Amino acid sequence: MSPATGIEKFKRWLNEAKLPADGRLPPERTLAERFNLSRSQLRKILAALEVEGRIWRHVGRGTFVNKRGLPPSKPNIDDIANRTSPPEAMQARMMIEPEIARLAALHATTAQIAEMRQLSQKMRDAKTWPEYEDLDWRFHNLLAEASSNTLLKEIQYLLNGVRRAVVWGHLNNRPVGPPEDYHSFAEHDELIDNIAARNRLGAAAAMQRHLNSTASTLVNDEDRLSLA
């Protein structure tokens, strides 16, 4: 099933499904089985629908239908992803995410910082790349929420969805899961520590170092794939 077909099929189901009063969707495992999708395929569909405004997700609570309606001006994440290269996605991240980290150090709540630490630990425990990918996606969206800047949050949701499709989808021949010494583990912890300490310059610098390291890893992975 193509991503576009999967999204349209899921939208039709959302329009017809009898959901609880709070709009909570069934667990991912149930949805993946219902639509005959892998967990990774399902998460990409959910990411696209969240960017469109059809659903929203809360770490630890689940996925919910957006009952406020679909804003007509939401960008099409698939269309943007099809026209974006991995270097372009990384360039946009380097322009936006350090500022988000700086604002998160100023505005993040104690509960949001605790969620960041929980996600960081779960990433260390991830056994597969799709599992890590989903947690990493949630982590960076949570940083945007912690910035308390509505426009930056919406931009980050779009950027995060595009880079997930462009970058992670580009590296689907990697080993089973992240190694114990994967560079992002320590980098995420450093970022959280600076946010918790309300060190705005430190948080921005930590994010910049994280993105530089990620960009270097991306280039190395591309080189390995080209030789495979």
Rank of each mutant, 00 (worst) to 15 (best):
Lys67Pro: 03
Ile113Asn: 02
Ala101His: 05
Tyr132Asn: 02
Glu88His: 12
Thr150Pro: 05
Val167Asp: 00
Asn199Phe: 04
Asn141Lys: 14
Pro26Glu: 09
Arg209Pro: 01
Ala203Val: 02
Met90Ile: 14
His210Asp: 00
Met116Cys: 09
Met1Ser: 14
Pro27Glu: 05
Ser85Thr: 15
Leu106Tyr: 01
Tyr157Val: 04
Trp137Thr: 05
Arg163His: 05
Ala92Ile: 12
Asp22His: 13
Pro178Leu: 08
Leu119Ser: 13
Lys74Leu: 09
Arg83Cys: 05
Gln91Glu: 12
Asn160Cys: 07
Phe10Ala: 08
Met90Ser: 01
Gly6Glu: 13
Lys44Cys: 12
Ser2Ile: 02
Ala111Val: 04
Asn172Cys: 00
Thr214Arg: 05
Leu14Cys: 03
Arg164Met: 11
Ala101Glu: 06
Leu37Val: 06
Leu106Asp: 01
Asn141Ala: 08
Lys153Pro: 14
Trp56Ala: 11
Asp181Tyr: 10
Ala105Gln: 05
Asn199Arg: 01
Ala146Leu: 12
Met207Trp: 01
Ala21Leu: 14
Ser73Glu: 14
Ile192His: 01
Arg164Gly: 13
His210Trp: 02
Met90Asp: 03
His58Ile: 15
Glu145Thr: 11
Arg174Met: 10
Pro130Arg: 00
His58Asn: 15
Ala196Lys: 10
Val219Phe: 09
Arg200Ile: 08
Ala165Val: 00
Ile80Pro: 03
Ala89Gln: 08
Leu119Thr: 09
Arg198Ile: 00
Glu190Tyr: 04
Ile80Glu: 09
Gln91Ile: 07
Lys44Ala: 14
Leu119Val: 14
Ser148Val: 02
Glu190Arg: 15
Phe64Pro: 10
Tyr132Arg: 04
Gly177Ile: 09
Leu70Ile: 13
Pro71Ser: 14
Val59His: 08
Ser216Gln: 15
Val219Trp: 06
Asn194Tyr: 01
Lys153Gly: 04
Asp78Lys: 12
Ala186Trp: 07
Trp137Glu: 11
Thr217Arg: 09
Thr63Ile: 15
Glu16Met: 09
Pro71His: 15
Ser40Ile: 01
Gln91Cys: 07
Val162Pro: 01
Ile195Trp: 00
Arg57Asn: 08
Trp13Ile: 08
Asp223Tyr: 01
Asn66Tyr: 03
Ser73Thr: 06
Trp56His: 10
Val219Gln: 08
Asn36Glu: 15
Arg124Gly: 13
Gly177Pro: 04
Glu52Tyr: 02
Leu106Glu: 08
Leu191Asn: 01
Glu97Thr: 03
Gly202Ala: 07
Asn66Thr: 09
Ile80Gln: 03
Ala228Gly: 04
Phe64His: 08
Pro87Trp: 11
Ile96Leu: 11
Ala196Thr: 10
Leu151His: 10
Ile155Asn: 10
Lys18Ile: 11
Arg209His: 12
Asn82Phe: 07
Gln41Asn: 12
Asn15Trp: 00
Ala108Pro: 05
Arg117Tyr: 06
Ala89Phe: 03
Lys44Asn: 14
Glu180Tyr: 03
Pro75Val: 11
Arg54Ala: 07
Glu145Cys: 06
Asn212Phe: 12
Ile96Gln: 01
Met1His: 13
Glu88Gln: 15
Arg54Glu: 00
Pro98His: 08
Gln156Arg: 01
Met90Arg: 03
Arg224Leu: 13
Arg200Thr: 13
Phe139Gly: 04
Leu171Trp: 00
Ile80Ser: 12
Ser147Glu: 04
Met94Arg: 04
Ile77Gln: 05
Pro75Asn: 08
Glu222Ala: 06
Lys44Gln: 09
